[in-house]
Nucleic acid binder design. Sequence first.
DNA 1: CTCTATTGCGCAATCA
DNA 2: GTGATTGCGCAATAGA
Lengths: 166, 166
Amino acid sequence: MNKQLQHKISNTDQNGVSVIQSQPHSALNPAGAAGLQQVPQLVPVSPGGGGKATPPSKMKKASMDKDSDEYRQRRERNNLAVKKSRMRSKQKAQDTQQRVNELKEENERLEAKIKLLSKELSVLKDLFLEHAHNLADNVQPPASGGGPGDLCNNNNNNNSSSNSSQ
Amino acid sequence: MNKQLQHKISNTDQNGVSVIQSQPHSALNPAGAAGLQQVPQLVPVSPGGGGKATPPSKMKKASMDKDSDEYRQRRERNNLAVKKSRMRSKQKAQDTQQRVNELKEENERLEAKIKLLSKELSVLKDLFLEHAHNLADNVQPPASGGGPGDLCNNNNNNNSSSNSSQ
DNA sequence: CTCTATTGCGCAATCA
DNA sequence: GTGATTGCGCAATAGA
């Protein structure tokens, strides 16, 4: 049971939701928002007003009755589906979290590797420079002109160390 | 497993809450069917293991009355808390997902960098080998211009360094 | 249109 | 006792 609680104050209210709340005795709501069941006798919307082709079904479904067998059956199925869906959702979240961990781990590995490679590279470059200097010293031609002696030095890249001290 | 609940429609329409939620889609609220709720769904069964059984005709608290002001108030608060909690949860999941994306991206970057460094390293190593061969073969090359062991032609890729991301 | 999947919401139990 | 979580059921809806 680990619990990661992060307080991210998102504050109340979200998108365009207006919550007018809690007036002890005030307006009377047409439909109980809280807790009650009401028989949804939908208004038999008469298709007449411009509508059309709506079959003359007065009620949406006869199965809307709670007592109906049909209704119970449907409810049960939906409940099952809901359960399944939520389970899946939860699992997914969990997996995602785990993925974060894995990625983090791999990231560290990669960074370590980079560090190592950088170091190796740095060493090799230094060696290289050293050799170049040696050569330059030995092969140094007597005459200046366009002597090849200086060739290796091209632009002496002092940046070589490049040292990754971020 | 099947719970058959008896509905009691003692709807008290005195809820002090009005939730106007802007729904992305057609917010059809026929006859105020929006806030339907189910009924008392679970009753604390008798604990069985000794102690007092719960008398069916007794209430633990007077606040249990749905009509109670106290009750409604508590419910309202809880509803808010629930909403908040869920919102937070959702947000967290979202953040986590985003984190995955970011990490993946960074991972790619790191791998690319590794590849590059590896290549550089490889090149340098080759050069070294070549040079070593040259030395072994002839300590004094006749001329440095265009010779086979022209180690200097390397354009040392000094692109590295100066790369400090993150 | 039927059926499942997803989503928002309220309730109640439980945690902290 | 209060807010925060969580499991669950309902209903509306999106999706197939």
